[in-house]
Write a protein that binds this DNA or RNA. Structure first.
Length: 420
DNA sequence: TCTGGGGTCCTAGGACCC
DNA sequence: TCTGGGGTCCTAGGACCC
């Protein structure tokens, strides 16, 4: 018998902050998005106080947070990434195949585990991760991915581990599980299912007319239905190279000039190109966009987007920056208040599958230059070397008023311990 | 004053080919 | 009065996820 495990870190960003601040354990904590724009992570104590609505603007809840003495943090992605990596490394000891689904979640293939006490196994996963990283996790184990997701969700009320093995037990749980809480069923799909009279996961499971499901919810919905029935359609997908990658950001302050946008785009290109080189790939096209603040009523709105293709695949930062500036020349309009910009690298292939173009004007990638830059930045810290196009002022940079130190990734910000 | 960022998969429809 | 059929590839847009 084949099983899937899903391990999910509880309030991951908040838990990371708590690792280094033991005094806030058991207290309400939230973490804000970029620019301290809105709330994106909450501990259960914060949820109990009525916070927990995803992406509620910070300025709207600021006073209430203060009143309830909620600890507030800006997001510290280098810390979260680093702790995530540690958690995943521990999970690798528990399975031959691990799918890292997101920064705080992973699927484990548990094939041929018939003679193992799955409950004990789940408990062991939990206690190991907690002991070695300080992060509390929930574990769900079931015969399909969709069911393991559900088991994981329910595990939060069951001491952190839940196994769905027995058919009657599973049906009993499905009857109490709302259809919109199923993994893969969002707002649009659940309202369609409601129209068919399907309210719970069990209703969905036993709904007979599969043609209608296929028609309304496409192949994805049909697979979810099968997965609820215990028929595994989705398998473990181990890390693959990204098919698209990019970088975009809201600006900390409004931006009006082409010069500043050039710098911001150059910065986004620098990050994206480094990601590309890290997975040893090249891209064939670049999309860049800029836009005004859609929330600001009464001010003129503009969305500018453009693309450029490369005759041969590239991961050359300078070449990609140059292309982003060419796009900017085409889409920039003076007189608007820009609030966000970004770049996307598309049509990504492994470097060894790169097709060279005979008529490409710069066929030779600055490949070795890029590698040296990556190496220096890895050893001496991010941004030790970068293109001058990224600017030095960077007035558009994000605001982060409540940032914790980079405890694990910066020599300057290591945790200090006073003795005596 | 202040509203995130980064992905994946699927389908329909257009362009193009023979 | 009449205007094929079948296939592939690409892209935009929708839906969903964390």
């Amino acid at each position: 018998m084949k099983y899937f495990g899903l391990v999910d870190c509880n309030s991951f960003y908040c838990s990371c902050e708590r690792v280094f601040r033991p005094e806030i354990r058991g207290k309400p904590v939230i973490v804000l998005s970029n620019n301290d724009g809105c709330a994106i992570a909450f501990t259960k104590e914060a949820k109990a106080l009525g916070f927990g609505e995803m992406c509620e603007p910070y300025y709207q809840i600021k006073d209430r947070l203060k009143k309830h003495k909620v600890e507030v943090f800006s997001s510290n992605y280098s810390l979260y990434d680093n702790i995530s990596r540690r958690v995943m490394n521990i999970l690798r000891d528990f399975t031959p195949r691990l799918e890292i689904y997101s920064v705080d979640e992973a699927f484990l293939e548990l094939d041929g585990f018939d003679h193992i006490d799955l409950l004990e196994y789940g408990k062991k996963i939990r206690s190991d991760v907690l002991q070695f990283t300080g992060i509390p996790v929930g574990v769900g184990i079931a015969p399909t991915k969709v069911l393991s997701k559900m088991a994981n969700k329910l595990s939060k009320k069951e001491k952190g581990v839940l196994i769905l093995k027995d058919e009657d037990e599973t049906n009993h749980r499905l009857k109490q599980f709302a259809v919109q809480d199923i993994w893969g069923i969002g707002r649009a799909s659940s309202s369609k299912l409601h129209m068919l009279g399907i309210k719970t996961a069990y209703d969905f499971k036993i709904y007979k007319d599969e043609r209608i499901i296929q028609k309304l919810l496409t192949k994805t919905g049909r697979q979810i239905q099968d997965e609820l029935r215990g028929v595994s359609c989705l398998s473990i997908e181990e890390a693959e190279d990204k098919k698209n990658t990019g970088n975009s950001r809201s600006f900390g302050a409004s931006v009006y000039t082409k010069r500043e946008l050039q710098e911001a785009l150059a910065d986004f290109c620098t990050h994206s190109a480094a990601k590309l080189r890290a997975q040893n790939s090249v891209c064939f096209s670049l999309t860049a966009f800029i836009h005004t603040n859609p929330f600001s009523e009464g001010t003129p709105q503009y969305y500018g987007v453009g693309s450029k293709t490369f005759a041969s695949g590239t991961s050359d930062t300078l070449r990609i920056i140059k292309a982003s500036h060419q796009i900017l020349e085409e889409i920039f309009k003076l007189g608007y208040e820009y609030k966000k910009g970004g770049v996307l690298l598309n049509h990504i292939v492994p470097r060894n599958q790169n097709q060279m173009d005979l008529f490409d004007e710069c066929p030779h990638d600055n490949e070795s230059l890029g590698q040296v830059v990556d190496l220096i930045n890895k050893r001496y810290g991010a941004k030790t070397i970068q293109s001058a196009a990224c600017g030095s002022n960077q007035s558009w940079r994000r605001i982060a008023n409540f940032s914790s130190p980079k405890y694990t990734t910066s020599w300057q910000e290591l945790l200090r311990i006073k003795l005596g």
